[in-house]
């Protein structure tokens, strides 16, 4: 991950700022942003426009293939409308992605700020904790915990956040450490600003660029993580649909009803790719060295 320089100059209007212009030039990023916008809108509005709800069971019309009848994307093993479930699942998966990201960012930023600002023993201890957490291959940690907890949307969100804050902490810590030596920070400290004020008012705003990039990539990671946990059967429980658990109940029917696996998987890939495109675009846009 390339480290972005802090943007010190105030931006001349958001839309026309150099960063924004660079972002808009980044076609993939624009594509990603548009896709996410559309996806979110579809998930919010879509379910209201459909004649079926995501939990309506109709055993007689089970396993209807896509594009062949009243169910546009077909039905699942209980005869529920896949499109309705896909959109409702999107709400859950996107919500899980964003909330897990928010929590992970909060933890990561605080740990990174404290470690970077104080350095010394406290900083070292915190960063060793980060290193230790990174020693676990992420899926191992996710599975070890998810096999042991009672699955619900909040517990899955927490679980994902707990296993994905470390990279953020590292990025922030490095950023803060380099910022600390700058004149304007030294000045602030010498004028008697409190540590808290220095950390959150002076240092943090100047570390925003890499944080925004990390946050975007974190959403992508969280959506993927949810799908892994759910795929392995430990995730969000029925009847609540999520993109991941739609896949979980789809594997046994890979030969007879492949659309059950293909549709939610494609949705996950689309969403995650879009977030990654945005992250990439943001990185380029916020990286002042580019021009």
């Amino acid at each position: 991950m390339s480290m972005a320089e802090p943007m010190l100059a105030p931006a001349p209007g958001f839309w026309n700022s150099p960063g924004m212009r660079r972002f808009r030039r980044h076609r993939l990023a624009v594509f990603g942003a548009a896709t996410i916008l559309l996806l979110t809108l579809a998930c919010i509005i879509g379910p209201m426009l459909l004649p079926y709800t995501d939990t309506f069971i109709d055993i007689r019309s089970r396993f209807a293939p896509p594009f062949s009848g009243p169910h546009i994307l077909g039905t699942d093993p209980l005869g529920r409308d896949i499109l309705a479930r896909l959109l409702m699942a999107g709400r859950i998966s996107l919500a899980v992605g964003f909330s897990a990201m928010a929590i992970a960012m909060a933890i990561g930023i605080v740990v990174g700020l404290v470690a970077g600002f104080y350095e010394g023993a406290l900083g070292a201890a915190l960063m060793r904790l980060v290193d230790a957490m990174l020693c676990f291959p992420s899926i191992f940690l996710l599975l070890a915990i998810s096999a042991l907890i009672q699955p619900s949307v909040p517990s899955i969100v927490l679980l994902i956040a707990m296993t994905s804050w470390m990279e953020v902490a590292r990025v922030v810590e490095a950023q803060i450490r380099s910022l600390k030596t700058r004149e304007f920070v030294q000045a602030s400290i010498s004028f008697g600003a409190s540590s808290k004020r220095t950390m959150f008012r002076v240092l943090l705003p100047n570390a925003v660029a890499p944080i925004v990039v990390a946050a975007t990539l974190n959403v992508a990671h969280a959506i993927l993580a949810e799908s892994y946990i759910s795929f392995l059967g430990f995730g969000i429980q029925p009847p609540t649909p999520s993109w991941g658990n739609m896949l979980e109940s789809a594997q046994s029917y890979l030969t007879s009803a492949p659309w059950l696996a293909i549709i939610p998987g494609a949705a996950i890939t689309l969403a995650v790719t879009s977030f990654n495109f945005i992250g990439d675009g943001l990185r380029d846009a916020l990286d002042a060295r580019q021009d």
Binding site: A220, L224, S227, Y228, F231, L247, Q251, L254, A261, G265, I268, T269, V272, T273, F275, N276
Partner: peptide
């Protein structure tokens, strides 16, 4: 961005 298990499927 592709979930590995889904790519496997």
């Amino acid at each position: 961005s592709i979930p590995t298990f889904w790519f496997g499927l």
